[in-house]
Amino acid sequence: MLKLTEIDTFYGDLQALWGISLEVREGEMVSLIGPNGAGKTTTLQSITGLLRPAKGSITFDGHDLLKVPPDKIVDLGVSMVMEGGRVFAGMTVLENLELGAYGSRARKERFETMEHVFKTFPRLKERLNQRAGTLSGGERQMLAIGRAMMSKPKLLMLDEPSFGLAPILVDAIFEMVKGINKQGVTILLVEQNVRAALELADRAYVIENGRIVGEGSGEALLSYESVRSAYLG
C-alpha cells in the first residue's frame, strides 16, 4: 500500500534521512521506533509532503506521492496526526473536525463521518462548541485523531500519540488506535513508548541516525536482544 524506496531527506543543508526504505501493507499496523532525533518524524513528514525527499521514491496505492502536491495527498487517503496533536486551539472542536474533512472527497460525507468519529470519541460530541484550546491533553489528542479520521483515511499515521499523557490515558488512546485499525484503517505509528508500540504492531522498523537498522514482527523485535537493551532497559 505504502512503499518508501531509498529516500534521502534534508533539513536545509543537513541530511536527516539516509536511504530509508520501508513498506506498509493494507490493513497492517506498523510501528516505527527509535531514539529521539533518529528521523521518525522526518520520515512521516516526507510522506505527507511537508518535507520533500531529495532522492528516492514514495508510492501509495500506485500513486507517486512525490508528484502529488501536499494538499492533494490527503485526498488520496493519507492522514497524519502530528506530535502533540496540534489542534487549532482558537477554533471550536466542531470547526477542527470540519477542517479535517476539508478535502473534496471527504467533504461530501462529513456529517456521516462525524457521527462515526463520535462513536469512537464520544467525549468530542460533548465538547463540540468549546474552543480546542480549552480541552485537556487527552481530549486534544482525541480531537487530533478524530480530525484526522474526518478525512476518511486509508492510511493513518500517528506521531507520538502518547506523548505527555497520563499512563491511564495512554492505554485508552492505544485502545482507540487499535479499534481504528480493526475498522480497516492501516496504521503507521511512531512511538517512544517502545514496549506498547511493539506489542500493538504487526510489524515494526527500528530507525537510528536516519537509517533503518532493524525490521521484524513486533513480537520478534520485543525479544531481540539489542532492542531490549537499547529501548526496554
Partner: peptide, 12 residues
C-alpha cells in the same frame, strides 16, 4: 494558527 497542520488537512 498553524500552517503545517492546515497543510495536513489538505488546505492549499
Amino acid at each position: 494558527e498553524d500552517w503545517q497542520s492546515a497543510s495536513l488537512m489538505g488546505i492549499n
